[in-house]
Amino acid sequence: MSLDNTQRNVGFQPPMMPAAAPAPAQPSQPQPQAWPPNPNAAVSIRGLFKHFDRKIAVNGLALDIPIGSFYGLVGPNGAGKTTTLNMVTGLLVPDAGTAMILGHDVWSDVNTAKRMIGVMPQPDQIFDRLTGLQLLVYSGMLRGMSRDETTRRAQDLLNAFDLAGAANTMVTDYSAGMTKKICLASAMIHSPRILVLDEPFESVDPVSSANLKDILIEYAKTGGTVIISSHVMALVEKMCTHVAVINDGLVCAAGTVDEVAAGEELEDRFLQLVGGRHEAAHLAWLDGGQAQAQAPTSAQTIQPILPTPATPTDEARQ
Protein backbone atom coordinates (compact mmCIF):
# COMPACT_ATOMS: atom_id res chain seq x y z
CA MET A 1 0.00 0.00 0.00
CA SER A 2 1.41 3.35 -1.02
CA LEU A 3 0.99 6.13 1.51
CA ASP A 4 1.24 9.83 0.76
CA ASN A 5 2.52 12.30 3.33
CA THR A 6 -0.99 13.02 4.63
CA GLN A 7 -1.61 9.33 5.28
CA ARG A 8 1.82 8.51 6.67
CA ASN A 9 1.75 10.79 9.65
CA VAL A 10 -1.00 11.06 12.22
CA GLY A 11 -1.54 14.63 13.37
CA PHE A 12 -1.27 15.59 17.02
CA GLN A 13 -3.02 18.36 18.95
CA PRO A 14 -1.63 19.90 22.14
CA PRO A 15 -3.76 19.37 25.25
CA MET A 16 -6.09 22.22 26.28
CA MET A 17 -4.81 24.25 29.23
CA PRO A 18 -6.99 26.25 31.63
CA ALA A 19 -6.69 29.98 30.97
CA ALA A 20 -6.56 30.93 34.64
CA ALA A 21 -3.74 28.59 35.64
CA PRO A 22 -1.52 27.63 32.73
CA ALA A 23 0.20 24.26 33.20
CA PRO A 24 3.75 23.48 32.12
CA ALA A 25 4.16 22.46 28.49
CA GLN A 26 3.58 18.75 27.93
CA PRO A 27 4.16 16.49 24.93
CA SER A 28 1.37 16.45 22.36
CA GLN A 29 -1.14 13.63 22.61
CA PRO A 30 -1.89 11.46 19.57
CA GLN A 31 -5.29 11.35 17.95
CA PRO A 32 -6.94 7.98 17.24
CA GLN A 33 -5.66 6.11 14.18
CA ALA A 34 -7.33 7.14 10.96
CA TRP A 35 -6.70 3.87 9.07
CA PRO A 36 -5.83 0.29 10.05
CA PRO A 37 -2.43 -1.39 9.75
CA ASN A 38 -1.67 -3.65 6.79
CA PRO A 39 -1.63 -7.33 7.86
CA ASN A 40 0.07 -8.35 4.60
CA ALA A 41 3.22 -6.32 5.29
CA ALA A 42 6.29 -7.64 7.06
CA VAL A 43 6.04 -4.65 9.41
CA SER A 44 3.10 -2.26 9.59
CA ILE A 45 3.24 0.79 11.85
CA ARG A 46 0.40 3.21 12.54
CA GLY A 47 0.48 6.32 14.71
CA LEU A 48 3.49 5.22 16.76
CA PHE A 49 4.20 7.75 19.48
CA LYS A 50 6.85 7.95 22.20
CA HIS A 51 8.07 10.75 24.40
CA PHE A 52 10.73 10.99 27.09
CA ASP A 53 9.86 13.71 29.61
CA ARG A 54 9.08 16.68 27.35
CA LYS A 55 10.98 15.44 24.31
CA ILE A 56 8.94 13.74 21.58
CA ALA A 57 11.09 11.00 20.09
CA VAL A 58 8.52 9.44 17.74
CA ASN A 59 5.58 11.59 16.71
CA GLY A 60 2.83 9.50 15.12
CA LEU A 61 5.07 7.60 12.73
CA ALA A 62 3.38 5.37 10.12
CA LEU A 63 5.12 3.00 7.72
CA ASP A 64 4.64 -0.29 5.82
CA ILE A 65 7.64 -2.53 5.10
CA PRO A 66 6.97 -5.13 2.39
CA ILE A 67 7.79 -8.82 2.87
CA GLY A 68 11.06 -9.79 1.18
CA SER A 69 12.37 -6.23 1.01
CA PHE A 70 15.77 -4.93 2.02
CA TYR A 71 14.55 -1.83 3.83
CA GLY A 72 16.77 1.04 4.92
CA LEU A 73 15.86 3.52 7.65
CA VAL A 74 17.89 6.69 7.39
CA GLY A 75 17.80 9.93 9.31
CA PRO A 76 19.97 12.34 11.29
CA ASN A 77 21.01 11.60 14.87
CA GLY A 78 18.02 11.88 17.19
CA ALA A 79 15.48 11.41 14.38
CA GLY A 80 13.75 8.53 16.18
CA LYS A 81 15.04 5.54 14.18
CA THR A 82 16.32 3.47 17.10
CA THR A 83 13.32 4.33 19.29
CA THR A 84 11.00 3.20 16.50
CA LEU A 85 12.87 -0.09 16.03
CA ASN A 86 12.82 -0.73 19.77
CA MET A 87 9.03 -0.32 19.85
CA VAL A 88 8.53 -2.49 16.77
CA THR A 89 10.69 -5.31 18.15
CA GLY A 90 9.09 -5.42 21.59
CA LEU A 91 11.93 -3.78 23.49
CA LEU A 92 10.16 -0.51 24.31
CA VAL A 93 6.47 0.03 25.09
CA PRO A 94 4.95 2.79 22.89
CA ASP A 95 2.85 5.56 24.40
CA ALA A 96 0.34 5.14 21.57
CA GLY A 97 -0.03 3.56 18.17
CA THR A 98 0.19 0.08 16.69
CA ALA A 99 3.02 -2.06 15.37
CA MET A 100 2.37 -5.34 13.57
CA ILE A 101 4.85 -8.08 12.60
CA LEU A 102 3.56 -10.29 9.77
CA GLY A 103 -0.03 -9.59 10.81
CA HIS A 104 0.57 -10.09 14.56
CA ASP A 105 0.15 -7.13 16.88
CA VAL A 106 3.48 -6.78 18.68
CA TRP A 107 2.12 -5.68 22.03
CA SER A 108 -0.89 -8.01 22.12
CA ASP A 109 1.44 -11.04 21.94
CA VAL A 110 4.99 -9.82 22.26
CA ASN A 111 6.52 -13.30 22.60
CA THR A 112 5.05 -14.48 19.28
CA ALA A 113 6.34 -11.36 17.55
CA LYS A 114 9.82 -11.79 19.01
CA ARG A 115 10.06 -15.37 17.77
CA MET A 116 9.62 -14.17 14.18
CA ILE A 117 12.37 -11.55 14.29
CA GLY A 118 16.09 -11.45 14.85
CA VAL A 119 17.39 -8.30 16.47
CA MET A 120 21.09 -7.60 16.25
CA PRO A 121 22.26 -6.73 19.79
CA GLN A 122 24.74 -3.98 20.53
CA PRO A 123 28.17 -5.04 21.83
CA ASP A 124 27.31 -3.94 25.38
CA GLN A 125 24.17 -6.11 25.37
CA ILE A 126 25.84 -9.51 25.00
CA PHE A 127 27.62 -11.84 27.43
CA ASP A 128 31.17 -11.13 26.34
CA ARG A 129 32.68 -13.53 28.88
CA LEU A 130 31.45 -16.40 26.71
CA THR A 131 33.41 -17.65 23.73
CA GLY A 132 32.02 -16.93 20.29
CA LEU A 133 30.77 -20.50 19.95
CA GLN A 134 29.21 -20.48 23.41
CA LEU A 135 27.42 -17.19 22.70
CA LEU A 136 25.86 -18.54 19.50
CA VAL A 137 24.81 -21.81 21.13
CA TYR A 138 23.30 -19.87 24.03
CA SER A 139 21.42 -17.59 21.61
CA GLY A 140 19.97 -20.54 19.72
CA MET A 141 18.96 -22.57 22.76
CA LEU A 142 17.39 -19.48 24.30
CA ARG A 143 14.98 -19.57 21.34
CA GLY A 144 14.04 -23.21 21.94
CA MET A 145 16.44 -24.90 19.52
CA SER A 146 18.16 -28.19 20.37
CA ARG A 147 21.82 -28.14 21.33
CA ASP A 148 22.85 -30.27 18.32
CA GLU A 149 21.04 -28.09 15.80
CA THR A 150 22.29 -24.89 17.45
CA THR A 151 25.89 -26.12 17.45
CA ARG A 152 25.70 -27.07 13.77
CA ARG A 153 24.30 -23.67 12.81
CA ALA A 154 26.82 -21.89 15.03
CA GLN A 155 29.69 -23.58 13.19
CA ASP A 156 28.16 -22.60 9.84
CA LEU A 157 27.86 -18.97 10.95
CA LEU A 158 31.38 -18.85 12.37
CA ASN A 159 32.74 -20.11 9.05
CA ALA A 160 30.59 -17.71 7.02
CA PHE A 161 31.68 -14.73 9.15
CA ASP A 162 35.40 -15.68 9.17
CA LEU A 163 35.30 -16.30 12.92
CA ALA A 164 36.10 -20.04 12.97
CA GLY A 165 39.61 -19.35 14.28
CA ALA A 166 38.15 -17.36 17.20
CA ALA A 167 35.35 -19.80 18.04
CA ASN A 168 36.92 -20.67 21.41
CA THR A 169 38.11 -17.15 22.23
CA MET A 170 36.13 -15.05 24.70
CA VAL A 171 34.16 -12.30 22.97
CA THR A 172 35.67 -9.71 25.30
CA ASP A 173 38.99 -10.32 23.49
CA TYR A 174 37.46 -9.77 20.03
CA SER A 175 38.21 -6.68 18.00
CA ALA A 176 35.39 -4.19 17.38
CA GLY A 177 34.72 -5.65 13.94
CA MET A 178 34.70 -9.24 15.19
CA THR A 179 32.30 -8.30 17.98
CA LYS A 180 29.96 -6.72 15.42
CA LYS A 181 29.99 -9.92 13.39
CA ILE A 182 29.25 -12.21 16.34
CA CYS A 183 26.34 -9.93 17.30
CA LEU A 184 24.92 -10.27 13.80
CA ALA A 185 25.41 -14.04 13.86
CA SER A 186 23.53 -14.31 17.16
CA ALA A 187 20.54 -12.54 15.55
CA MET A 188 20.50 -14.95 12.59
CA ILE A 189 20.98 -18.35 14.24
CA HIS A 190 17.26 -19.15 14.61
CA SER A 191 16.56 -18.26 10.95
CA PRO A 192 14.11 -15.43 11.66
CA ARG A 193 11.64 -14.18 9.08
CA ILE A 194 12.68 -10.57 9.76
CA LEU A 195 16.15 -9.27 10.60
CA VAL A 196 16.48 -5.91 12.36
CA LEU A 197 20.00 -4.50 12.19
CA ASP A 198 21.21 -1.22 13.66
CA GLU A 199 24.43 -0.05 11.94
CA PRO A 200 25.58 -3.64 11.20
CA PHE A 201 28.67 -2.70 9.17
CA GLU A 202 30.19 -0.19 11.58
CA SER A 203 33.83 -1.11 12.39
CA VAL A 204 33.71 -4.14 10.04
CA ASP A 205 36.62 -4.49 7.59
CA PRO A 206 35.82 -4.27 3.84
CA VAL A 207 36.33 -7.99 3.13
CA SER A 208 34.08 -9.14 5.96
CA SER A 209 31.59 -6.42 5.10
CA ALA A 210 31.34 -7.71 1.52
CA ASN A 211 30.74 -11.26 2.78
CA LEU A 212 28.05 -10.09 5.21
CA LYS A 213 26.30 -8.14 2.45
CA ASP A 214 26.22 -11.26 0.25
CA ILE A 215 24.69 -13.30 3.09
CA LEU A 216 22.02 -10.66 3.79
CA ILE A 217 21.14 -10.19 0.11
CA GLU A 218 20.76 -13.97 -0.31
CA TYR A 219 18.60 -14.10 2.82
CA ALA A 220 16.30 -11.41 1.38
CA LYS A 221 16.04 -13.33 -1.91
CA THR A 222 14.66 -16.35 -0.04
CA GLY A 223 11.77 -14.26 1.27
CA GLY A 224 13.34 -12.88 4.44
CA THR A 225 12.97 -9.21 5.26
CA VAL A 226 15.97 -7.11 6.30
CA ILE A 227 15.50 -3.79 8.10
CA ILE A 228 18.70 -1.85 8.43
CA SER A 229 19.34 1.45 10.16
CA SER A 230 22.39 3.22 8.80
CA HIS A 231 24.00 6.61 8.27
CA VAL A 232 25.95 5.45 5.21
CA MET A 233 23.88 6.58 2.23
CA ALA A 234 26.07 4.85 -0.35
CA LEU A 235 25.53 1.52 1.41
CA VAL A 236 21.76 2.02 1.63
CA GLU A 237 21.54 3.10 -2.00
CA LYS A 238 23.54 0.07 -3.16
CA MET A 239 22.01 -2.65 -0.97
CA CYS A 240 18.44 -1.65 -0.18
CA THR A 241 15.35 -2.08 -2.32
CA HIS A 242 13.33 0.38 -0.22
CA VAL A 243 14.14 3.29 2.06
CA ALA A 244 12.37 5.58 4.52
CA VAL A 245 13.73 8.96 5.54
CA ILE A 246 12.86 9.76 9.16
CA ASN A 247 13.24 13.15 10.81
CA ASP A 248 11.79 14.56 14.04
CA GLY A 249 9.97 11.29 14.67
CA LEU A 250 8.07 11.38 11.36
CA VAL A 251 8.45 9.78 7.94
CA CYS A 252 9.52 12.43 5.42
CA ALA A 253 9.49 10.05 2.44
CA ALA A 254 9.18 6.30 1.91
CA GLY A 255 9.17 3.92 -1.04
CA THR A 256 11.65 2.25 -3.34
CA VAL A 257 15.12 3.76 -3.40
CA ASP A 258 14.47 5.19 -6.87
CA GLU A 259 11.16 6.73 -5.78
CA VAL A 260 12.69 8.44 -2.76
CA ALA A 261 15.81 9.58 -4.64
CA ALA A 262 13.57 11.09 -7.36
CA GLY A 263 16.31 11.09 -9.98
CA GLU A 264 19.03 12.43 -7.67
CA GLU A 265 21.72 10.91 -5.53
CA LEU A 266 20.09 9.52 -2.39
CA GLU A 267 22.37 11.58 -0.15
CA ASP A 268 21.43 14.81 -1.92
CA ARG A 269 17.75 13.95 -1.67
CA PHE A 270 18.19 13.07 2.00
CA LEU A 271 19.71 16.48 2.73
CA GLN A 272 16.83 18.19 0.96
CA LEU A 273 14.28 16.30 3.02
CA VAL A 274 15.80 16.70 6.48
CA GLY A 275 17.40 20.12 6.00
CA GLY A 276 19.90 21.40 8.51
CA ARG A 277 22.81 21.81 6.14
CA HIS A 278 24.47 25.20 6.29
CA GLU A 279 27.56 26.92 5.01
CA ALA A 280 30.78 26.01 6.68
CA ALA A 281 31.59 28.22 9.65
CA HIS A 282 34.44 30.61 8.92
CA LEU A 283 36.81 30.57 11.86
CA ALA A 284 39.42 33.24 11.35
CA TRP A 285 41.97 31.44 13.47
CA LEU A 286 41.52 28.07 11.74
CA ASP A 287 43.85 28.65 8.80
CA GLY A 288 46.16 25.65 8.71
CA GLY A 289 49.05 27.83 9.88
CA GLN A 290 48.87 30.14 6.85
CA ALA A 291 48.74 33.31 8.92
CA GLN A 292 51.91 32.42 10.74
CA ALA A 293 53.66 31.36 7.54
CA GLN A 294 52.75 34.58 5.74
CA ALA A 295 53.47 36.95 8.65
CA PRO A 296 55.98 39.69 7.65
CA THR A 297 59.43 39.21 9.16
CA SER A 298 60.64 42.79 8.62
CA ALA A 299 58.60 44.25 11.46
CA GLN A 300 61.00 42.94 14.01
CA THR A 301 64.52 41.84 13.14
CA ILE A 302 66.26 39.66 15.65
CA GLN A 303 70.01 40.27 15.72
CA PRO A 304 72.25 37.44 16.77
CA ILE A 305 74.19 37.98 19.98
CA LEU A 306 77.88 37.90 19.17
CA PRO A 307 80.68 37.54 21.75
CA THR A 308 82.33 40.84 22.76
CA PRO A 309 85.94 40.98 21.48
CA ALA A 310 88.48 40.73 24.23
CA THR A 311 90.37 43.95 25.10
CA PRO A 312 94.06 43.59 24.25
CA THR A 313 96.28 43.43 27.29
CA ASP A 314 99.31 45.66 27.77
CA GLU A 315 101.59 42.68 27.21
CA ALA A 316 99.88 41.96 23.89
CA ARG A 317 100.26 45.59 22.79
CA GLN A 318 104.02 45.38 23.24
Rank of each mutant, 00 (worst) to 15 (best):
N111Y: 12
S230F: 08
P94I: 12
Q303D: 11
S2P: 04
G224T: 00
M87E: 00
A20R: 12
I194M: 05
Q125F: 04
G11Y: 05
Q33G: 02
A113G: 14
A291R: 15
L271I: 13
I126W: 09
P307I: 07
K50R: 14
F12G: 04
S203A: 15
G90I: 12
T89S: 15
A254Y: 01
L216E: 00
D287A: 13
Q303E: 12
G275L: 09
A113C: 03
I56P: 07
P206K: 11
Q290E: 13
A41W: 15
T241I: 11
R129S: 11
M239S: 15
I215S: 08
A167F: 02
P24K: 06
Q13P: 09
G177T: 04
T89A: 00
A79E: 12
D128C: 12
F49P: 01
R193T: 06
M100A: 15
E259Y: 13
T222W: 05
A254M: 08
W35E: 07
V251P: 04
E267N: 07
H190F: 10
P200Q: 02
Q33R: 10
L92D: 11
D53T: 07
V93L: 02
D124A: 13
E237H: 02
Q33P: 15
K55G: 03
D173V: 06
I56T: 14
W285R: 14
M16N: 09
P18S: 11
L235S: 08
L273N: 02
A62F: 06
T311F: 09
T82L: 07
V88C: 02
F49E: 04
P76R: 15
T241C: 15
H51Q: 14
I126P: 13
N38T: 09
H242W: 11
P14I: 00
A284D: 07
K50A: 02
H51C: 13
G60V: 01
A291C: 13
G144S: 05
